[in-house]
């Protein structure tokens, strides 16, 4: 039972819908956090540092940075939602306990949560893309294909975050994951500079990280350059997504179905 493959059911949508309704109420502060920080990076680093850098990988530094930030902010949004918000609903507010008394199962709840994490990424990603476009960092309508990629990044990073929630006994625990995994990925996966400038040993490790592949999809779409190895990049993200989804469901079952 515990190790069974997750069961997917339309009931998960009612969990997703619950989160949408809550988000609608708290939309202001939520959007501010999800857009404010990336906007600061774009304005502060993009214009400030961009002035000294000029071009990077045959595009303006603002475009280079905007494409990296679009992917990284989806990673951050999904991670925070999957840890702090999911933990709040699972433990602090005991929302899942209430849901478990209905036809919803843990499988439904987690599927709904992951779907919601990705939706939240899509909402803030759309806003960031609009801002980046207004700043002149986006080149061409093919950039709209960034949105499904952002949704996929959201699905990918929701799983590991929910795994952290399943193990956690308090909010402080999440800083291990943020410090040991999320921040290094943010710094190393090519958000701020091309990974080709890293030492070869480090490059090999960085090539295994999902954010690296996400950026290699988003960047050409934003800059208008040619997309390469789409299957590989999408494939890596999908594998991470599926494996994390499986363990997220199993570990939350182990915590709640006892």
């Amino acid at each position: 039972m515990t190790w069974q493959l997750p069961h997917i059911n339309f009931r998960a949508l009612s969990v997703w819908r619950r989160n949408v309704l809550v988000w609608r109420k708290l939309m202001g502060p939520s959007l501010l956090i999800n857009i404010g920080e990336p906007l600061l990076y774009l304005l502060g680093l993009g214009y400030g540092l961009g002035l000294f850098i000029g071009q990077m990988s045959d595009m303006s530094y603002l475009t280079f940075l905007a494409s990296g930030i679009l992917a990284a902010s989806a990673m951050n949004t999904a991670s925070f939602e999957g840890m702090f918000s999911v933990y709040t609903r699972m433990v602090t507010q005991r929302t899942y306990e209430a849901m478990q008394a209905t036809p919803l199962s843990v499988d439904d709840i987690i599927a709904g949560e992951i779907l919601w994490c990705a939706t939240k990424c899509l909402i803030s990603g759309t806003a960031i893309l609009a801002v980046a476009t207004a700043l002149g960092a986006v080149h061409g309508t093919q950039a709209l294909f960034v949105l499904p990629i952002i949704f996929l990044i959201g699905l990918c990073f929701a799983g590991p975050a929910i795994i952290m929630s399943a193990f956690s006994h308090g909010y402080d625990f999440f800083y291990y994951y943020l410090t040991l995994f999320i921040t290094p990925m943010f710094i190393l996966s090519g958000v701020f500079y091309p990974i080709s400038s890293l030492p070869t040993g480090v490059q090999a490790v960085v090539q295994l990280l999902p954010l690296t592949h996400a950026i290699q999809l988003v960047r050409p779409l934003v800059s208008g350059q040619a997309l390469t190895d789409v299957g590989l990049h999408v494939g890596v993200i999908v594998v991470y997504t599926l494996v994390a989804y499986y363990f997220a469901v199993v570990l939350v079952r182990k915590r709640l179905v006892v």
Partner: peptide, 20 residues
């Protein structure tokens, strides 16, 4: 374990949605 993010009536309608 009422949902603190919702009003009284929303608690009932959202809970109803879990039963489809």
């Amino acid at each position: 374990n009422l949902d603190p993010d919702f009003s009284v009536i929303e608690n009932l309608s959202v809970y109803a949605s879990f039963f489809s």
